[in-house]
Design a protein around this nucleic acid. Structure first.
Length: 683
RNA sequence: AGCGGGAUGGGAUAGCCAGGAGAUUCCGCCGGGCUCAUAACCCGGAGAUCGGUGGUUCAAAUCCACUUCCCGCUACCA
């Protein structure tokens, strides 16, 4: 494309999406951080000067809400998670060159600088908007402090996002029928001045940017719809205490929206790294475009990194990212990961099981394409790491080095054959190409393929049948292959690569080796190796899987129990309506006895079922929200009461022609006492 | 229905953007070899008309149109 291939002479900063300091890390998070870490290490293997930075995302409404629930300050709450993240990442060999958090001084100052620059450049304007206000709590209600109805699709939604319906980002003031989440009372809208970044100012830039952007195709395609269309202004302030104060007069009671200061942390950590080490220039990279910026994120925050963030950068005269790589999600046993249902493997849990972190790293980087969802099951995990890492890599390294030490006390004195040299050189080329395509799977598998070649090679030459003089060149080749495998595999399994490096008694760190070292001679003398990988045995897999299933079941029964409790306490009867209707009004309802003939769930809907109901004159199709509440197979034959003249509606694309009457939250279906025929009028 | 993603030998996965030889690799299966090595490794074999239909093309898993089916979207989950 428009960019020079890696390695380049300029410096590169790789970032991972900021973890939100609001909960524990699980393997879903780990996928991003491991991949970004491996990618950075991979770039270094090519000889690229690259650093890897990220930080904890400390601000925002959810943290304020959750901290309040716990009765601690938001800062204390967020810092606690931040510290936990800092401790956890190294355990997975995720080594940030700099890891900060958005509440520190560097980020606070730099964020204010961004805003001042936007103002200077004339991209900020003030606009009166409606902000939800809780009169009882005497408080503004930003984002998730308010819930209501989505103006676009009519679903129940949170203040900042239509989470249950159309998934749109909602600007303040958009949500209808606002209700305070603090008190449960209806909120009122009050007019309030807020600051907006005018995205339309940089629309043209964004349109060019998206065409220059490298990375995964989902990141390149998903935002097109927005960027090509009319860009709405981005509200950058909130009525809250927790956050970075808006710099400027008359706005002291406003803080910046969390998505303003969060991505700026990428710059802040780069700056901190530069200042701490003195061997990186953050300004040329971030301000002048004299360098490369690669963002690695989860696919849920593509919009922020391909629309808002590049707009923020451009509006402040900063450089644009070279690439955005968005990973797919991680599924557990084929189903979506869910923290609330405890369908998750937590980082701590994995470590407690004593399975080597490098195994997870390899699996996460190579189990599927970067932007594809990856399915995690212990079964699949074990199959892959056992056969590829233990059987192919581990076995080759061990047999080759053992042979070398037993017969030659190290690397035999011989030249590397042309065949092996070519094979290694090919692997180096493929590896470089893969990384330039942001294709970690190919890069990782290429390293394993080299070990597989080693197994073929040793098998084909059968050095055990040769005398030492004849075997020497063969083993020389094998040791070279071992060294090359260690170098190429290091970004994926850094600790294990260290072990190989130690086994062949190399002096320098394998982390500092580049792919060029694949063809450099290994030390002449080294001692007997040890087995590199321990397999995850079948019994262990069963055990791990059982634990996981039990955990998920326990969580779902807990949930049911707690739901039961909450429902029990809510069984207060609704108050009787005061207003009376006339007999005529009542007569306007055409109520009929019906008999259900067929019932089936509507695909894609959680609660809706499609019913066919015989009402004497005809069979009606009626949609009812009872999928969860009744066994659909048992409904045919049941007699029900329906409203026959209700206006038609379309739900999930299915027409509903009438309404089934049911009592209460459990949808207890109304029926007749005797056996009136279908179609009988009810009066 | 909307948004996003998918459909490739028994299972899993690559290739699709930049159409072209035998469609990749892993697991499993069948047969053989080796015994230096973690019951591992190596060789050979069976097994896919690449969801369907139509189109473009000398040529389509790959491009276009239509279509069927599947998955995620009650969580702050990357």
């Amino acid at each position: 494309m428009t960019y020079e291939d890696f390695p380049t002479d300029e410096q590169t900063v790789v970032t991972a999406g900021l973890p939100y300091a609001n909960g524990d890390l699980h393997i879903g998070h780990l996928r991003s951080y491991v991949n970004a870490d491996a990618f950075t290490r991979g770039l270094r293997k090519l000889g690229q000067d690259a650093i890897y930075v990220s930080g904890s995302d400390m601000h925002g409404t959810p943290i304020a809400v959750n901290a309040a629930e716990e009765g601690v300050s938001p800062e204390e709450f967020a810092l606690r998670h931040h510290e936990q993240y800092e401790q956890t990442f190294p355990k997975f060999n995720v080594d940030f060159d700099q890891y900060g958090h958005t509440h520190d001084e560097t980020n606070t100052e730099l964020t204010k600088e961004f805003v001042r620059k936007w103002e200077e450049n004339g991209h900020v304007h003030e606009k009166e908007i409606n902000v939800a206000y809780d009169p009882e709590a005497d408080q503004w209600l930003p984002d998730r402090y308010v819930e209501g109805t989505c103006p676009y699709c009519g679903e129940h939604a949170r203040g900042d996002e239509c989470d249950e319906g159309c998934q749109r980002h909602l600007e303040p003031g958009e949500i209808e029928d606002p209700v305070s989440t603090l008190t449960g009372n209806p909120a009122e809208y009050r007019v309030r001045d807020h600051k907006f970044l005018r995205l339309s100012d940089v629309q043209e830039h964004l349109q060019g940017f998206i065409n220059r952007l490298e990375g995964t195709s989902n990141a390149q395609n998903q935002p097109r719809e927005w960027i090509e269309g009319e860009l709405e202004d981005f509200c950058i302030t909130r009525d809250m205490d927790w956050g970075i104060d808006y710099p400027g007069e008359g706005s002291e009671d406003l803080v910046l929206y969390v998505w303003v200061d969060a991505p700026i942390e990428y710059v802040s950590t780069t700056k901190q790294y530069s200042e701490r080490t003195g061997d990186f220039d953050w300004e040329p990279v971030w301000k002048d475009g004299d360098g490369h910026i690669v963002h690695i994120i989860g696919r849920d925050i593509i919009q922020h990194h391909t629309v808002y963030w590049p707009a923020m950068l451009e509006a402040a005269d900063y450089a644009e990212p070279r690439a955005v790589c968005a990973t797919g999600f991680v599924n557990i046993d084929g189903k979506g990961l869910s923290t609330s249902k405890n369908r998750a493997i937590w980082a701590e849990e994995y470590l407690d099981e004593g399975v080597h972190p490098d195994l997870l790293r390899y699996y996460m980087a190579t189990a599927s394409g970067f932007e594809r969802d990856v399915n995690f099951s212990w079964d699949r995990f074990a199959e892959r790491v056992n056969s590829e890492l233990a059987d192919v890599v581990g076995n080759f390294v061990y047999r080759a080095l053992l042979f070398a030490t037993r017969n030659f006390d190290g690397t035999p004195d011989a030249d590397v054959s042309a065949d092996v040299e070519t094979e290694i050189a090919d692997a180096m080329d493929d590896y470089e190409d893969a990384l330039n395509d942001y294709d970690l799977k190919s890069a990782g598998e290429r390293a394993v393929a080299l070990a597989r070649y080693g197994n073929e090679y040793i098998q084909r030459n059968e050095p055990w049948k040769l005398d030492d003089e004849e075997a020497a060149p063969v083993i020389r080749d094998c040791v070279q292959l071992v060294k090359a495998v260690a170098v190429l595999l290091q970004p994926f399994v850094p600790e294990k690569a260290d072990e190989i490096w130690a086994q062949i008694e190399e002096d320098n760190s394998v982390a500092d080796a580049t792919i060029g070292d694949c063809l450099q001679a290994p030390p002449a003398a080294f001692g007997e190796p040890e087995e590199l990988f321990t397999k995850v045995e079948d019994e262990r897999v069963e055990e791990l899987d059982e634990k996981l299933q039990e955990k998920i079941e326990a969580a779902s029964s807990d949930e049911e129990e707690s739901e039961d409790v909450s429902e029990a306490s809510e069984t207060e009867l609704e108050p009787l309506a005061d207003e009376r209707v006339s007999f005529e009004d009542f007569q306007a309802l055409d109520l009929r006895v019906g008999e259900i003939e067929a019932a089936e769930g509507i695909e894609g809907a959680d609660d809706l079922a499609r019913l066919e109901v015989d009402i004497g004159h005809e069979v009606r199709q009626i949609v009812a929200g009872i999928k969860q509440l009744h066994d659909l197979d048992e409904l045919p034959g049941k007699r029900v009461v329906i409203v026959a003249n209700l206006e038609k509606a379309e739900l999930f694309g299915v027409e509903s022609n009438g309404m089934i009457l049911a009592a209460g939250e459990d949808a207890d279906l109304l029926t007749t006492h005797e056996d009136s025929e279908p179609g009988t009028k009810i009066k």
